[in-house]
């Protein structure tokens, strides 16, 4: 009896709950988009300054992946002027990579998380700036 309570203690009575089909990924995205303001984000002078202050250390002043840390990293920083890769990434993926770091999107751990440094508007704006640099959009 005790074992039964311990095993099910944090859950609910599964049999009493009606079967609910889990939402698809698309439905989740439509209901609660990861970045609600992203499409409205504008690239401003502040965005460019933010990129130069933080991102350019690794990604370079012109976003070519040739920042001053680049040659010391085990995985080269992304070249933001190359569309080939960036057009395979969605804006949400770029947003998450900046906010939560490279590992969060299955990429290199060299890219730190900036979510405690930059607010979501600033990150969304950087995503648009990267789109400007690569002159590309998600396919």
């Amino acid at each position: 009896m005790l074992l039964t309570i311990l095993v099910t203690g944090c859950g609910e009575n599964e049999q009493a709950r009606p079967a609910i089909k889990p939402p698809t990924q698309q439905e989740v995205k439509q209901a609660s988009p990861l970045v609600p303001q992203q499409k409205l984000a504008q690239v401003t002078e502040n965005t460019r300054q933010t990129y130069q202050w933080y991102c350019a250390q690794c990604h370079g002043m012109k976003g070519k992946g040739d920042g001053i840390n680049a040659k010391f990293l085990t995985v080269p920083p992304r070249n933001h002027t190359k569309a080939e890769y960036l057009e395979t990434r969605t804006d949400e993926q770029l947003f998450e990579a900046i906010k939560f770091g490279g590992l969060s999107v299955g990429r290199a751990p060299c890219m730190p998380a900036w979510g405690h440094t930059l607010n979501e508007d600033a990150i969304a704006s950087l995503v648009q700036y990267i789109r400007e640099l690569c002159q590309c959009e998600a396919l």
């Binding site: 690794c58 001053i68 840390n69 010391f72 990293l73 751990p109 060299c110 890219m111 730190p112 998380a113």
Partner: peptide, 25 residues
Amino acid sequence: FERTFSCISCHQSLNLAGKVRGGIS
């Protein structure tokens, strides 16, 4: 230090073999 917080990307440090590695910003 290296993977969760990515410190090594900007700071030179010592790896377990005692070799200097890391970014310079």
